[in-house]
């Protein structure tokens, strides 16, 4: 994998790549295990479907920021390709501005959404946070449908659920991915904005991604032939 590089950025790369591979691997194994449970043992892992869906959400939302870093997001670059460098840079700046706006708005939204489940106050204000809404009702009692509570998270009961026991995993856990992923997305867009400003990058979308992958595939084929 490309994460073989050294230094802190290499380590971060390798963490991100392992998380992506690991989440997908786990989803596959859980679903497969459930089929085996039903076919071979006439049983069912009742929480398998829900847990797989949560892992799926984590995979895509966390992966979105990695895709920004590797310029993998799908987009239209037909017009960009027709433009000379100067206007192309203007358009790249405009589009990274849109991306920053999106991630800032969604970061507020994601925190607000998650906060009530964490017994924390959401922010007030429609577009921008203007303070904390201390009157918002806590929803820390709210559990998921099927995934059981795990012993390692019992400390949450005292921390946010006023000592009441959870039977199922509280929703604060799966939803945690929302604020985390939106924060990571914001950071990656800030980096991209800096690169565009310095002229190191001229677009936000994948243009040569397919070619790159083919390049990698050809390299692999050549290795096999060698």
């Amino acid at each position: 994998m490309s994460g073989a590089g050294s230094g802190p950025s290499g380590i971060i790369n390798s963490i991100e790549e392992n998380v992506i591979a690991g989440l997908l691997g786990l989803m596959t194994l859980i679903t497969f295990a459930n089929v085996i449970a039903r076919f071979a043992f006439n049983s069912n892992i009742l929480w398998a479907l829900e847990l797989t869906v949560f892992l799926f959400a984590w995979l895509v939302l966390l992966g979105a920021s990695y895709a920004v870093k590797t310029h993998a997001h799908l987009g239209v670059d037909a017009i960009l390709n027709m433009l000379p460098p100067a206007p192309r840079r203007m358009m790249a700046l405009a589009s990274v501005g849109c991306c920053l706006a999106f991630s800032l708005l969604l970061l507020k939204g994601a925190y607000d959404y998650w906060a009530v489940f964490a017994d924390l106050p959401p922010t007030s204000g429609r577009w921008f946070p203007t303070g904390f809404d201390l009157k918002a009702r806590s929803q820390s009692f709210y559990e998921v449908q099927d995934v059981p509570m795990v012993a390692g998270l019992r400390w949450l009961e005292g921390l946010i659920n006023y000592g009441d026991a959870y039977e199922k995993l509280p929703k604060v856990v799966p939803y945690l991915v929302l604020p985390i992923s939106m924060l990571l997305l914001l950071l990656r867009f800030v980096q991209a904005a800096r690169q565009i400003w310095r002229g190191e990058l001229d677009r936000m979308v994948a243009s040569h991604e397919v070619e790159d992958e083919l390049e990698a595939m050809r390299a692999q084929h050549n290795e096999e032939r060698d």
Binding site: H73, L74, G75, D77, A94, S95, C98, M204, V205
Partner: peptide
Amino acid sequence: MLIGVPIAI
């Protein structure tokens, strides 16, 4: 989309 914002965004 036309100015190059990723489709998702």
